[in-house]
Design a protein around this nucleic acid. Structure first.
Length: 411
RNA sequence: GUAGGUGUAGUUCAGUUGGUUAGAACGCCAGGAUGUGGCCCUGGAGGUCGCGGGUUCGACUCCCGUCACUUACCCCA
């Protein structure tokens, strides 16, 4: 019986994992720099957390949750995103009141798989609790930009918006859109009730024309939010963070209350061009049973980030061994002995134990991209030394273990 | 959930109007005077043609179903 992976999931094979390691290492470095600490929360949570946290009406909750009943009949979901679980942990562990956290791990959404979209995917994110100032918004955005830069993605664009609309804005927008009904496409008529701001973002030319004079959210913010938001923009400029204000940008999760942002790329398809996204959510902690605590955060999508790197031609390879030990069939014992001595001295070493022909062993060394080969055969045993060959130059000479270690580490 | 496309070797794909032992390239393995890799040459292994059913003397090829993959919509990372 041959099994195959489930729908919408993938194996991240060793050809790809170096890219993932690169992204994890680079982003972790930035988190440390900003004094954020790692938190690991469970993959499973009770369903209520997300229904309450993300919003009952959101697509994620309505149709994309990977849920099941456990043996005691508890209704459980594989987390569809990271924030709700971290907020739950923040409250439950009495952390705080100011906590700067980052996390990483798999998320699950039961959707139709598509380019850049999987049922199980990997996110790296941060959540910063207890700071309501615009500086914090700017810090988090600046940190995101630093991560993207550290990873080596170029040409991404930062979009920002603020979702703290003053009371009545949505009504005002809907009323305006009603007057333009005739010029809107079917999709937009659908969105009109559910997510009116999205109508402003339609690619359809006639829709674009119809909504040209629509009231923008950025022109209709709560007064204190407007002040906060303009300070955020000021601090972005002050920290040399280029941004584009995009008043049509909304987020898929209902909990955002203020500044929101997205980094997009043109290297992937238009529908999966968001590589990192986040924003401020000042009500969620209270909503989930904690004290009222301001918070802001973001998450980046590992798969998309990795695909962007690949699309940009960045080649991130795992390094091969420093030394590959080639031993004659009669001297496998000596070869194994040398292998262990090399490793004990911190030299990355590999060997084939089958005692195949030298040609075959050399081919293996080549395919592993080994920098050096050490040969143990008749001659070496007789003279009591080893032959070290540099695979790049082809140069080869006899030497003892000490010299080998020195030579290999010197390069 | 809706709509399209595709399932043939490890991978990317050929396969003529249905007809005998299903091919190529790359990859893999082995060999090519001298214990020595990459390039080149020779040879070899590897496929129940996604699965099930139907039509037919005969199906990789036609029909139905199913599963999977893929693209777009919706939405999102």
């Amino acid at each position: 019986m041959k099994y195959q992976r489930l729908r919408g999931v993938k194996d991240v094979v060793p050809e790809i994992t170096p890219v993932w390691e690169h992204i994890i290492i680079k982003s972790s470095g930035i988190f440390k720099l900003y004094d954020y600490r790692l938190i690991i929360t469970p993959t499973i949570e009770e369903i209520g957390l997300f229904v309450r946290g993300i919003g009952e009406g959101s697509d994620i909750v309505m149709k994309e949750m990977y849920d099941f009943k456990d043996k005691k009949g508890r209704h459980i979901v594989l987390r569809p995103e990271g924030t709700a679980g971290v907020v739950r942990a923040y409250i439950e562990n009495n952390m705080g009141p100011k906590s700067n956290l980052y996390y990483l791990g798999q998320m699950f959404r039961y959707e139709r798989p598509q380019a850049g979209r999987y049922r199980e995917f990997f996110q790296i994110g941060v959540e910063a609790f207890g700071d309501a100032t615009p500086y914090k918004d700017a810090e988090v955005i600046r940190m995101a930009a630093d991560i993207i830069a550290a990873i080596g993605v170029t040409g991404s664009v930062l979009h920002i918006n603020c979702l703290a609309a003053e009371d009545g804005y949505y009504e005002k927008l809907k009323t305006f859109l009603e007057t333009k009904r005739a010029g809107l496409c079917g999709d937009c008529l659908n969105k009109l009730e559910r997510a009116p701001i999205r109508v402003l973002d339609c690619k359809n030319e006639t829709c674009k024309k119809a909504v040209m004079d629509a009231p923008l959210i950025t022109q209709n913010l709560k007064p204190e939010a407007a002040e906060h938001y303009s300070k955020v923009k000021e601090m972005l400029v002050a920290s040399y963070t280029a941004y584009v204000e995009t008043p049509t940008m909304v987020r898929g999760l209902d909990y955002y209350t203020g500044t929101v942002f997205e980094f997009t790329t043109d290297k992937l398809g238009p529908q999966q061009n968001t590589i990192l996204a986040g924003g401020r959510y000042d009500n969620l902690v209270e909503e989930l049973g904690g004290k009222k605590t301001p918070a802001t955060g973001f998450a980046l999508g590992m798969e998309r980030m990795a695909e962007v790197l690949t699309a940009e031609g960045r080649i991130i390879d795992a390094a091969g061994p420093d030394v590959f030990v080639v031993a004659d069939k009669a001297y496998l014992h000596e070869g194994f002995d040398l292998l262990n001595k090399l490793r004990a001295q911190g030299v990355k070493a590999a060997m084939s134990y089958e005692g195949n022909s030298f040609k075959s062993q050399f081919r293996e060394a080549e395919s592993k991209k080994s920098r050096f080969v050490v040969i143990i055969g008749e001659n070496e045993i007789k003279t009591g030394s080893y032959a070290l060959k540099n695979m790049a130059t082809g140069a080869q000479q006899a030497m003892d273990l000490e010299c080998i270690v020195k030579e290999v580490k010197n390069e």
